[in-house]
């Protein structure tokens, strides 16, 4: 058991790290989707119609 663990330690740690990154990415994608954000490739700050996507995030304090 210990032997197996020590032999595969690098793989285990690596796999965990990759899984963590993927979980983070998935969480971010879902969150952006929920907030209707990141749909377009232009970036919203420079978008002339940003107000349509984020009508509430308009006032200066939110930025």
């Amino acid at each position: 058991m210990w032997l197996w663990l020590s032999e595969n330690l690098a793989t285990l740690v690596g796999a965990l790290a990759v899984a963590a990154v993927l979980a983070l990415v998935a969480w971010k994608i879902v969150r952006d989707h929920r907030r209707h954000k990141g749909g377009c490739g232009g970036g919203c700050g420079s978008c002339p119609n940003a107000g349509f996507c984020h009508p509430d995030a308009q006032s200066a304090e939110h930025r």
Partner: peptide
């Protein structure tokens, strides 16, 4: 910057 950054962000997620 706005456009470039959102492109990089998409590369790191989607």
């Amino acid at each position: 910057w706005e456009r470039g950054w959102s492109f990089i962000k998409r590369a790191g997620t989607v």
